[in-house]
Design a protein around this nucleic acid. Structure first.
Lengths: 352, 352
DNA sequence: CTGAAAGCGCTAACAT
DNA sequence: ATGTTAGCGCTTTCAG
């Protein structure tokens, strides 16, 4: 209600004030106004006059005018599969943090696993002239080739970039180590019939998690039983069906390693519906820690994948270390095995 | 490996091609190039030449050049408290969906409940000349007054805008109805000692949820016991402390209504630690549904707040219905009571 | 310290 | 159907 100064009460006064308006009002040249806002040398007196004029007009220097001149927008793009997935939300938070600390804003979009959509998004971001793009690639490579060819800089996060995309750095969680730790923990507990929930479907290439699983088992001298490798996509339906098939079929797994949080969720749900006790009847663990893992009864053992770190590092790589181009080795951020209560010795094991 | 066309293999070829480059290469005027990309009339032959030239140069029209001319950036801003909170993640997904269908991109940032940060973010978005802002306000009002004065358009989501901000539409979930439904359900079950977890702290104004709680109890002739109104902020520490105080103190609640998902989480955790059985010893319900609610044992009864819808509607309001300005009544999107297994009759009750 | 002027990439008259 | 030109709001020489 109380007016703070002359002419301050008016809402929606036409279009935004420009540098000219401010210059006119302060009775100076536009260059002077520019200097005041982008830090040139201006006498204190003049500076004050300009500030006052600007305030009265609610002037904000137009980033689009500036960007046109400077060829930098001060913004980056972020493309994730799904903003509601807790891991990608974390990743996003990491990018946001880093971007803020470097003075950049970020335009976000979700590709939902669709390479075409990803291409559209990336293209648009390029039109927007973002200073760079952090992307969890969806699998298409045309988009990225074109982006790189046009001089865009991108760093991939969380997933391998499609084949044939050089010159783009990448940062991943060290899932190989994570799965390895988990498998060794399970084997150490006495398990020999460990199911892997989330194996590659026919035709897909085997992921690092499955690879690490097989590899570790082999190393420990535990035979890999193909009946226990159950294929599933990381979506609720697919996960649930796979978990149900596994747990109620005759596979007789003593432990299940869910290769993602959606798979873990499915395993927990199915186990409960089948009245299997965890970990007495079956042990369950998953890769990807989520808030509800602690809320389960018993709390779920999981491999934590630090999404924030991934996002932060990716953004940093994009913006700070732009110098050393060429991808080099991907950055691996460490995972952590969080032992909670959902794994125990297998059913028939002899004590301790 | 295989080259797709002449001159297509080069990466990072200096700076992005401009309209001039394309015009020169296609041997036409720049206006013609513009027409090809923004839809003017161009002969098929010329159009093709231009397209070809553009493709060879990996040309993408610069949105910043365009924006300068058209005074529209085709982007909106979204400010949420925290992108990792499932509700705000949903809201964000809603905004993203709507924005895409309307051809806008969205720049996102998180204010983390800090009005100063919110002001910085909003200011920056204004500098960016976004076409509008969807915001979950943090509580500061100076930022918004200035934004509105400068001609920005904003719609608030999920939370009441600070006092004194007129002319901005708003969309909320109908928490009043949600809490009412929940309280009536609990009372119908026979509860008379229902705790409210998440009451306003001394000095804060009472929120709608608490208001609805008190109101409904009163209407049903159940006395409101101030010992059962336990203050807590929606953060893990505060929530946990409050839940612990409530459940292990002598308050003797037969049911607890947690006013947010973090509060609900705390209640579940504390109940388990205290070996209280749910719902036999104590019923638990919360406002705000989250994925883990179904994973709990027993699954948690909750009031679902459709974040996606809120986001979508807010964005729609901002972009489509820009015509009818002035806020009018806030849009209320309906909540839904999801009855699961965590509530039952109070301990001493005489059966159904 | 300050102002005038050129130009960033694009669109929209206006001419042809 | 196509080319020319004048800005959009800003930064940045270059003079003064």
């Amino acid at each position: 209600m109380a007016e703070k100064g002359a002419g301050k009460g008016a809402y929606a006064e036409g279009r935004p004030a420009t540098i000219k308006d401010v210059a006119a009002r302060a009775e100076v040249g536009i260059a002077t106004v520019s200097r005041v806002f982008s830090g040139g040398s201006v006498s204190a007196r003049t500076r004050e006059r300009v500030r006052a004029a600007a305030e009265e007009l609610d002037y904000r220097p137009s980033a689009v005018g500036r960007s046109l001149k400077t060829r930098r927008t001060g913004g980056i793009g972020l493309i994730v599969p799904d903003v509601t997935d807790p891991f990608y939300a974390d990743l996003m938070a990491g990018v946001l943090n880093c971007a803020r600390s470097l003075g950049e804003h970020v335009v976000v979009d979700a590709a939902h696993g669709d390479p075409e959509r990803e291409a559209l998004i990336a293209d648009r971001m390029m039109e927007q002239r973002v200073d760079g793009i952090v992307a969890v690639p969806a699998g298409g490579n045309e988009a990225w080739e074109s982006v790189l060819r046009a001089g865009g800089n991108v760093v991939f996060a969380d997933r391998e970039s499609p084949a044939g995309i050089p010159a783009a750095p990448a940062v991943f969680t060290d899932d190989r180590a994570g799965v390895r730790a988990l498998v060794e923990y399970l084997v150490g507990l006495g398990h020999r019939r460990i199911a892997f929930l989330g194996a590659a479907e026919a035709g897909d290439s085997v992921g690092v998690r499955e690879g690490a699983f097989r590899e570790t088992l082999k190393q420990r001298g535990v035979p890999v039983n193909e009946d226990l490798m159950v294929a599933a996509r990381p979506e609720r339906d697919s996960a649930y069906a796979a978990a149900a098939g596994l747990l109620q079929g005759g596979a007789n797994a003593s432990a299940v390693l869910a290769s993602g949080h959606l798979l873990g969720e499915a395993a927990v749900l199915v186990a409960r519906e089948l009245d299997l006790r965890v970990p007495a009847d079956v042990s369950i663990a998953m890769v990807g820690d989520v808030p509800w893992a602690e809320l389960c009864d018993p709390p779920l053992t999981a491999v934590a994948r630090p999404g924030q770190d991934v996002g932060y590092r990716a953004c940093e790589l994009l913006l700070r270390d732009r110098a050393r181009r060429g991808r080099g080795e991907p950055v691996l951020v460490p995972t952590e095995l969080l032992i909670r209560g959902s794994c125990g010795p297998p059913r028939g094991s002899r004590g301790r």
